[in-house]
């Protein structure tokens, strides 16, 4: 793969299928190594990325696949959650791109599609969970798309 920007026509953005399990497992493991997102390999099952329906929650895992090779290069989960205040919030979670494709614009293409989907679901707002140690460059990219930092999430692990 050449080190060029990836264009919309170079990729297919689609829903996760169980056959994407291995590829997504690799991507999430890499992301966990970089940012310690709390990923547990045993908990990522074949069905974990399927379109999910649960009371007060809708979830889709989007996959970016290279048209030329069929390789999964990026993934991200979108969720629509009704919170206790009655707000319907859209989340972009576990956004990750294969190491060799980072910085090629594929994550942004995926995020644009995710925002379209969350808008179509009628969410009141969209939130993105980023690692605390995220590069400021990434925050700037998202602020150009209209995202402003509003919450810091603290976590205690058991």
């Amino acid at each position: 793969m050449s080190i060029e920007q990836i264009q919309e026509e170079d990729i297919i953005i689609r829903n996760y299928r169980t056959s994407d399990y291995e590829a997504t497992l690799e991507i999430l493991k890499d992301l966990n190594e970089l940012f310690d997102i709390g990923f547990n390999e045993k908990q990522w099952r074949e069905s974990s990325g399927l379109r999910q329906f649960k009371p007060n929650l809708k979830r889709i895992t989007l996959i970016a696949e290279l048209k030329s090779t069929g390789q999964v290069v990026s993934m991200g989960m979108i969720e629509g959650v009704k919170n206790t205040l009655g707000q319907y919030i859209g989340y972009l979670d576990n956004w990750a791109t294969k190491k060799e494709f980072i910085g090629k614009g594929v994550g942004k293409l995926l995020a644009d599609r995710a925002i379209q989907i969350l808008e179509s679901w009628g969410t009141d707002s969209i939130r993105i969970n980023l690692a605390y140690t995220t590069d400021e460059k990434l925050i700037n990219i998202f602020s150009k798309l209209g995202f402003q930092p509003i919450i810091t999430v603290l976590e205690k692990r058991f």
């Binding site: 069905s47 379109r51 329906f53």
Partner: peptide, 19 residues
């Protein structure tokens, strides 16, 4: 639990999680 599925793609698997 009741869930509406507006579209269900050909051969697509969906995951329903119920309490």
């Amino acid at each position: 639990m009741t869930q509406k599925v507006e579209f269900w793609f050909s051969l697509e698997e969906l995951l329903f999680v119920s309490p």
